[in-house]
Design a protein around this nucleic acid. Structure first.
Length: 509
RNA sequence: GGCCCCUUCGUCUAUCGGUUAGGACGCCAGGUUUUCAUCCUGGAAAGAGGAGUUCGAUUCUCCUAGGGGCUGCCA
């Protein structure tokens, strides 16, 4: 067991888009696998055929790829342990359920869904909210423990639907050691005889995940905390199937909590609070509803991944910016926190800003150019580079570069009302007019030259920058704030700059 | 309700019994800047409560409270 190869799996069910909590689970699996020189496997858990959502599986694959968390093996990625879709493994599960029946650890149950509803309701009416199919109640239900074997056989032969349930011993302490939580212990008296095999011929998650993890030689099960309560059941299944010696190690991850109020982050929270909860935009094929995605909102995948990595884990140093390969190196399941982590959108934005700054000007200019192009604006490489480097420090997203630099394109259409009211007057008009004529004489219209001319105008007239700057900016860009006026002049060029000053002198009061 | 898990600044977190309890986001103030942003400096801000163990508990144990998860022929 010590020398066995690390093999971990991410096993989502394709019932909708993968949300960021799922992505983080995948990420931790990936980081652990890569660090240990192991394999990361994608398995699709589609044993509930009633909840199948078209497109969800592809969405999961696309999301992982976008994040750079690419499986070594699994659905869509090949491998020697396939198929990797549980629905395609359907025939493999029955024999294990039968094995459990034969060795006395499972039994047939013929109670219909309606029967169970009725019993649960009766229990509830009697003041007990939690009826369980367990070691005491099973004695009054229709199953192979209460029915004669002839009767059981008769029902099966007649094609009567049945499920197979695990048979738990009473008052047995089930313990296992979780990598993040330490020893966890549950008594079987508090567990129920879970269905392992459904009447539609499909296994439930519980059976399928044990069989597949065993057959796929999974070494570590890293999953969300919502699975903690059923982990003891899984331990028992390994035991009853005779696989306890090669049972994977468990690591149950803390949940991602919503930023406000209580509870875990859910798909509705994002659009309610103004941030995406999904990596990629998702169009619900049935309702037509659209859920926003990080990618479409302009987040860099590495920033998104970096942020997720820190929700529930940290390296113990003060470094916060980590590339995926640095995360692989630094990651440790032992340093994963136990308590749920509340999502903080401001921090996510900050991560994105950090990644934007890490980009060199050329790359930034390229991204800016293609963004502008999508908006219908073609920009020369030279101009894109100038604008990108000028605006870089004030941007969180590529789209900020575009939105904050609108005044570079297509002239000034309107003037900021507040600045106009406060800063534009007869005096400002005079200064702009004079500067216009001074600027018209500058041969080489560089930032340094316009600045020198502007400053000497100020000193000659004993003026402060504040007297002239705001009005000049308003005339040049229509705005009350922004980057260096002279850099703007240089990017606009002499002709366009003068034209704007003329326009302002003409249009403004 | 039952069971399981959890509990350090508003948020993410560091601390492997002895620290002025550190960092980051956010917030506030000051400085730089024509302005805004950036940047720099500073500030406010935390061990849920109660017992116990110990020379000494944020750290170990227990109780209480609070939070979360699970409680389906869903995963």
């Amino acid at each position: 067991m010590a020398a066995e190869k690390v093999r971990v799996r991410f096993a989502p069910s394709p019932t909708g888009p993968l949300h960021m909590g799922g992505v983080r689970t995948a990420l931790y699996n990936y980081l652990f696998a890569k660090q240990q020189g192991g394999d990361f496997i994608l398995r699709i858990e589609d044993t509930d055929q009633t909840r199948f959502v078209p497109g969800a599986e592809q969405y999961i694959i696309d999301s992982l790829k976008w994040c750079g968390i690419v499986p070594d093996e699994g659905q869509g990625f090949g491998g020697n342990y396939g198929p990797y879709r549980q629905s395609e493994r359907k025939e493999m599960y029955r024999q294990y359920a039968m094995q459990l029946i034969e060795n006395g650890h499972a039994y047939y149950a013929f109670d219909s869904a309606e029967d169970l509803d009725r019993v649960r309701q009766m229990a509830k009416d009697a003041g007990s909210p939690n009826w369980q199919y367990n070691h005491v109640t099973r004695n009054s239900m229709k199953n192979s423990l209460t029915l004669s074997s002839a009767e059981v056989q008769k029902r099966i032969d007649a094609g009567e639907p049945y499920v197979i349930r695990i048979k738990l011993n009473r008052n047995e302490e089930v313990k296992f050691e979780d990598i993040v939580r330490g020893w966890v212990s549950v008594n079987t008296n508090n567990m129920d005889d879970k269905v392992l095999f459904k009447s539609d011929g499909m296994p439930t998650y519980h059976l399928a995940n044990i069989v597949d993890d065993h057959l796929m030689e999974i070494s570590h099960v890293i999953r969300g905390e919502e699975w903690l309560p059923s982990a003891p059941l899984h331990v028992l299944l390994y035991r009853y199937l005779g696989w306890e010696d090669s049972m994977p190690q468990f690591a149950h991850l803390p949940l991602l909590l919503k930023p406000d109020g209580n509870g875990k982050l859910s798909k509705r929270d994002g659009d309610r609070l103004g941030f995406p909860v999904f990596p990629l935009e998702w169009h619900n094929p049935e309702s037509g509803e659209v859920f926003s995605g990080y990618r479409e909102n302009g987040y860099f995948a590495p920033a998104f991944v970096n942020m997720l990595a820190f929700l529930g884990w940290n390296p113990g140093t003060e470094q916060e910016i980590f590339s995926l390969s640095e995360l692989v190196e630094a990651f440790s399941l032992k340093k994963v926190n136990k308590a749920g982590a509340r999502y903080d959108h401001d921090k996510t934005r900050w991560f994105n800003q950090q990644y934007l700054r890490l980009l060199d000007d050329e790359t930034l200019a390229e991204l800016f150019t293609s963004y502008a192009s999508e908006q219908g604006q073609e920009i020369s490489v030279e101009k894109a580079l100038a604008i990108a480097s000028l605006m870089k420090e004030r941007a969180y997203f590529i789209k900020d570069l575009w939105e904050e630099s609108q005044f570079f394109f297509g002239g000034v259409e309107e003037y900021d009302e507040k600045t106009l009211r406060k800063k534009w007057n007869e005096e400002a008009r005079t200064h702009v007019a004079k500067l216009r004529s001074i600027f018209s004489n500058i041969e080489d219209f560089t930032s340094a030259n316009t600045e020198a001319a502007f400053k000497s105008y100020l000193s000659e007239n004993e003026l402060g920058f504040g007297k002239v700057g705001p009005g000049f900016r308003l005339a040049l860009t229509g705005k009350g704030m922004g980057p260096s006026l002279f850099d703007i002049c240089a990017i606009l060029g002499k002709e366009a700059s003068l034209k704007r000053l003329d326009q302002a002198l003409e249009k403004l009061p």
